[in-house]
Design a protein around this nucleic acid. Structure first.
Length: 131
DNA sequence: GCCAACGTTGGC
DNA sequence: GCCAACGTTGGC
């Protein structure tokens, strides 16, 4: 799940502990949020920053429900809880260099703000980042 | 700040 | 239903 750190960062989430992942206004991204289940883990990716990187880990604590910041209906948010901030974030540049991560949606559809990760990608990322 | 990629809108 | 125009995202 991506967010520009000037808008909302992993440190903001650490401070708030729990937050609604609001503002998603893209159907594909929304549908991926709807597929999330309570207890799922998600990476927090810092976009629009230097360097863009996977910065933290969070847990889905409430499944998709209407986004209170949306004036039209049909847009959802999930609630996320801080799990950890990685002491050494994994930059986009690093990700591009790791052969088993070449399949990541991140590299193919760079604009999609909520995206799925395959089990093997997940294992690889956790191994590098530490859990 | 630029621009490629890509989603959305609206005229036809 | 097509497609041009336009807006947004996000890497660089």
């Amino acid at each position: 799940m991506k967010s520009g750190p000037d808008v909302f960062s992993i440190e903001d989430l650490r401070r708030e502990n729990v937050a609604g992942w609001d503002g998603v206004r893209n159907y594909q991204a929304r549908n991926f949020m709807r597929a999330m289940r309570k207890g799922d883990l998600a990476f927090f990716y810092h976009s629009n920053t230097e360097p863009p990187a996977i910065a933290g880990l969070m847990e889905i604590i409430q499944e998709a429900h209407p986004d209170p910041t949306s004036e039209e209906s049909g847009w959802d948010q999930v609630k996320v809880k801080f799990v950890k901030a990685f002491p050494r974030p994994l930059s986009l540049d690093d990700i591009k260099r790791i052969p088993s991560l070449r399949t990541m949606v991140l590299l193919r559809h760079s604009r999609l703000s909520v995206q799925p990760i395959t089990p093997s990608e997940w294992k690889c990322l956790i191994k590098i980042l530490g859990k």
